[in-house]
Design a protein around this nucleic acid. Structure first.
Lengths: 309, 309
DNA sequence: CGTTGAATG
DNA sequence: CATTGAACG
């Protein structure tokens, strides 16, 4: 029973706001409480973080803000915010004066990206210039002094690969986008790219050749994206850690205790235009920070231009 | 990310079953743990309970079974089970050898009724004899030696009264049903009848005259049902407690702390054919038992036929 | 397994 | 405010 009954609630005082507490002992369901493992960025380096939060609202209940406070990146790129409008008071304008939100118009509570930056970009762009395929808030591009930043949540090919076709068309649009940007400046292409490139990039390659994220189609498409026409693009984490296996995974499904068993996938990337590679001072997988999401944050140190070799 | 990835889970052992514990200190979100207030039934009386559980699965996590163990009624009528099929192992066949489930075929996880009985009925019937209006598992009728038991979850008129019309047609069918049954034996008509009959039956009559459950249409229809053609039907609780107000409420909406503020409705009833009234030994509102549902159990003591006056 | 929004009460 | 099932991942 009930339905309306708004009349019952008319002149009642608002209930006390519930305080959601995180457990003192870290479980796998919240982010850490102790971030002493985070070291200061190397001198002359900017810190850029990419993180698929699998719902920003939910992540906030699991320690997202405390993580950001501890990590304190110069630029923070988020995917799967599932936000329907900008969350204006999530992170202070003082810490991050430049905030960019791209929310899905096609489907509510779905997909969505955001970027928080301490550095003011010269330009911002939502979606593609020449394609309307991004109606789900998956792409934000910022132009900085010495590079373009492309932060993206690549469409999943879907159960039984029902959206593989759309995914392939997305990849085409992205390659065109990167080519266009590289005419002016090198690019940092980051985010949840929703592909495990090689067998080394997931725990169970053999059983996943027809699973979304590890089809030949998606892997081949990513190889193609890494080629580029003027110069190659470099998968920075793999470049620096050619043999990393389990330590490379950035995603652990919630089902079947994948995290505990290290049954993961490497789906999140920093891909840089070759000319930028010399400025890459490190890529760090924050896989201690599982708990707010089924993904973990990934971090790039980029040497400032004057400091580069 | 994720989608399929069933392949990841292939040969993994099942995760340890989670144990849901109820807090030691009773809150308003679980039923009591101490049932010492439940007294034994008067000698020569059967105990019949009606309870809208607002999802039996959910109620089970909030102490429903412990309540039934303590209350131990002879007949237990449930409404809003939201079960899609009989829950075979809910209550033992030893305690309740006769179990009757009526599940909604029209909408999954919606409505639904059940009866558990220690006494074997002569006959059981699901829905109406002459109408197909009950496609949502709202009605079970059992014939016992000396009476018919009609246990019902009456359709809500809906927000903005969008289903008021359907509700009126339901009431018509119910009156025909009762008339037919009374040709052979008197009737106990119980359940969530989804109406507060009089102003005394809800906390805020003034603001609810166009709310589902307190429209003139529904109230008038209930009056009509109480008339009967051969003999009247008696609202047993009101008959025995003519002045009860807050103590009569059987429903407290979840919103706006209605329970704490005693902002309730009397929506659950035992209506008996006049010839049965002399056997009614008591009707008890178990409003200490809030917590599993937004309704509370209502209880009828019925004297055995030989013991009656 | 966990998140969302829609429907219902 | 609570519950459900559908969609998605």
């Amino acid at each position: 029973m009930a339905v309306k009954r708004a009349a019952d609630t008319a002149a009642e005082p608002a209930a006390a706001k519930k305080v959601l507490m995180r457990p003192a002992v870290p479980t796998n369901k919240t982010m850490p409480t102790d971030y002493s493992f985070i070291e200061p960025a190397p001198a002359g380096c900017r810190k850029i973080v990419s993180f698929n939060v699998n719902s920003l609202a939910a992540a906030c209940k699991k320690g997202f803000k405390e993580y950001v406070a501890a990590e304190d990146p110069d630029i923070l790129c988020l995917q799967e915010t599932k936000a329907n409008q900008p969350m204006a008071f999530l992170l202070s304008k003082k810490q991050y004066p430049h905030q960019f939100w791209h929310c899905s118009r096609a489907k509510k509570g779905y997909s969505g990206t955001a970027i928080f930056s301490k550095i003011k970009p010269l330009r911002s762009q939502y979606g593609f210039e020449t394609s309307t395929i991004d109606d789900e808030g998956r792409l934000i591009t910022l132009e900085f002094e010495s590079f373009h930043l492309v932060a993206c949540y690549v469409p999943n090919a879907g159960e039984k690969l029902v959206r593989l076709d759309r995914r392939m068309r997305w990849d085409d649009a992205m390659r065109a986008h990167l080519e266009e940007l590289e005419k002016s400046k090198p690019v940092i292409y980051t985010g949840d790219l929703n592909v495990a490139h090689c067998e080394i990039d997931l725990a169970r390659p053999d059983s996943n050749h027809r699973s979304a994220g590890f089809t030949d189609e998606e892997r081949g498409s990513f190889s193609k994206t890494l080629q580029g026409s003027a110069f190659p693009r470099i998968d920075a984490f793999r470049h620096l850690h050619p043999d990393a296996r389990a330590d490379a995974y950035t995603y652990f499904g919630y089902r079947a205790n994948c995290r505990e068993k290290s049954v993961g996938w490497r789906l999140d990337y920093f891909v840089v235009s070759q000319p930028l590679l010399s400025r890459v001072a490190g890529v760090i997988n924050r896989n201690q920070c599982y708990g707010a999401s089924d993904h973990v944050p990934l971090l790039l140190y980029l040497r400032d231009k004057d400091h580069s070799a």
